[in-house]
């Protein structure tokens, strides 16, 4: 498939935004249970703002993918059958929830929603955050299923696609939260940073598992089934036109083998081991700079990862578009 930059930015940005929000809520939950000290209000407000910014940028990027962005609202119509439609509903719902979450922290809302007896602080934000958490995971599911549900894109048609979208998003979000904590709430840096390392390494394991799986795939469709002729040697002599068409532009990545391989190694280094190393250095007294840099490096790596995710998928329609002649 042709990696479209709109979709690369959409999926990586919202993935990180969701992950950042999940990190904020994790800290709040731990703090409510007295497992962590309570962070200052600025940690939540700035964090929510950053998560909202990431989600909004992703949403903005998605519009560049559409031929008719002014009709985008129509995409909510078919949520019964289409994962894309579901994503279109869940993303704004999550954005609204994150905004409400940040606002509740900003206003310091402290209604005792669950009764006076419950010793937990922050009833409102815990409730809003819980809804947001459900939405964030639902969004990972929607985004992953958009790709995983197309059964003839065999590279994508695996639960690993959803798992990777989730883990890679959560990992980058926790990395971002670590950088944020280094600036806004240093006592929480170690907690978030360690989880960021664990999630990053976990994401690496599942992403490599997907690479290994895809390397062993055998295409179900062949030229024989594509044109229905049973012969071991069939070659296309003409695809029916000389220059490009939508089919030659949309479904081939068009990059040289060197670029393709380069992207694979770039993401394998930039998205996982390097940010994990930077996080470790930052936690071991390296200060805020490596912690903030870790997110930048990991995000670059995830851009390459998403490029490769698309480029690696081999659409069966390509069988029909092999030869200009």
């Amino acid at each position: 498939m042709h990696p479209a930059f709109s979709v690369i930015f959409l999926t990586t940005l919202i993935g990180a935004g969701q992950g950042l929000f999940l990190a904020l809520y994790t800290v709040e939950l731990y703090a409510a249970l007295d497992l962590l000290p309570a962070p200052p209000q600025a940690f939540y407000t700035r964090g929510s703002l950053a998560a909202l910014a990431l989600l909004s940028l992703g949403l903005a990027a998605s519009f560049f993918h559409l031929g008719h962005p002014e009709r985008a609202w129509r995409a909510a119509a078919r949520w019964r059958t289409s994962w894309l439609s579901r994503e279109v509903i869940v993303l704004p719902a999550l954005m609204a929830t994150v905004a409400a979450y940040g606002l509740a922290h900003l206003l310091g809302l402290d209604w005792r929603l669950f009764g006076e007896a419950l010793p937990l602080p922050g009833h409102v934000t815990l409730l809003v955050g819980g809804i947001g958490t459900a939405l964030a995971f639902a969004l990972y599911l929607c985004t992953g299923m958009i790709y995983a549900c197309i059964r003839f894109l065999q590279e994508w048609h695996t639960p690993l696609t959803v798992i990777n979208y989730t883990l890679l998003g959560v990992a980058s979000g926790f990395t971002a939260a670590t950088g944020l904590a280094a600036l806004a709430s240093p006592p929480h840096t170690a907690f978030l940073g360690r989880w960021a390392i664990i999630l990053t390494l976990l994401g690496m394991a599942t992403r490599v598992a997907a690479l290994v799986r895809n390397a062993r795939l055998k295409p179900k469709s062949t030229l024989q089934t594509a044109i229905g002729v049973r012969h071991s040697r069939i070659v296309q002599r003409s695809q029916g036109f000389m220059c490009g068409s939508f089919n030659t532009r949309e479904f081939f990545h068009g990059a040289s083998p060197a670029v393709y391989e380069g992207m694979r190694w770039a993401f394998l280094v930039l998205a996982f081991p390097l940010p994990a190393l930077l996080l470790a250095v930052g936690l071991e007294g390296g200060g805020a700079v490596p912690l903030v840099a870790a997110f930048g490096v990991q995000y670059l790596g995830l851009l390459a990862e998403r490029w490769f995710f698309f480029a690696q998928a081999n659409h069966p329609q390509n069988l029909y578009y092999q030869t200009v002649g």
Binding site: M1, G67, R74, S82, L84, N247, H315, Q317, N318
Partner: peptide, 17 residues
Amino acid sequence: CIGCKYCSWACPYGVRE
């Protein structure tokens, strides 16, 4: 149609343009 191209991904025959 919003031109999202998703249907063309979901057709194995490459006949949507």
